[in-house]
Amino acid sequence: MALLEVSAVVSGYGQTEILHGVSLTIDDGEIVTIIGPNGCGKSTLMKTVAGLVNVWDGTVNFRGKDISSTPPEQIARTGLCFVPQTRNVFPTLSIRENLEMGAFLRKDDFTWRIEEMYRFFPDLALDPGRRAGSLSGGQRQMLAIARALMLDPTLILLDEPFAGLAPAMVYLVLDRVLEINRSGVSVLLVEQNARQALSVSNRGYVLVSGENRLEDKGSALLDNPEVSRLYLGG
């Protein structure tokens, strides 16, 4: 059984329908990348799965349970954690407070988990009292991912984690994402310029105008000349 199964989901904002019946699945331990042009509904799909955008039709099953009408603060509890593309940290809170907020639902003493995140992203340990709003793009992305990991998720959704990062930072964050996946967390990635992401993904989906266009192995999508030309910038 798939870990996450999105079937024929329709959703949007206000009166505007963005997703017109999108389906995808992620199995345990997989990295799956969604690519597609600007405005194809990638971010909307992420927000819909995370519960921030209402599902109008279709179902979202996570670990065998329908979460399509579950509010976002309950979805976090089920082990599905979301890292938005922008505004993904609490800017006036310190690094440590951001991690504490990531662990808001934990009832146990999670200090060890914070320490683990400091070891995993040593940049965060340099000055844990520093306000997240003053971090660089890469450090902010690390903090955003660390915040989402605080709840020990089984699936993490990353919305364009490499967008706007310096090339060296892209490799660093990619390396950490792979390590997170190796530790047993499934990863759903959304990327616009997605060569790196596809090269490390088990499978990929191409989303166009709120509909599925293609689905294949990550390497196969990279080799597909049409995908390469249309969606990967040649």
Binding site: P71, R77, C81, F90, L93, M101, F104, R147
Partner: peptide, 24 residues
């Protein structure tokens, strides 16, 4: 306090607070 930090977090970024499991 936990609730106080959650209040500041909600003021900072309500959507991120929600997906972190902080109820409104």
């Amino acid at each position: 306090t936990r609730i106080g930090k959650a209040m500041r977090a909600t003021a900072d970024n309500p959507e991120l607070a929600l997906v972190s499991g902080i109820g409104t």
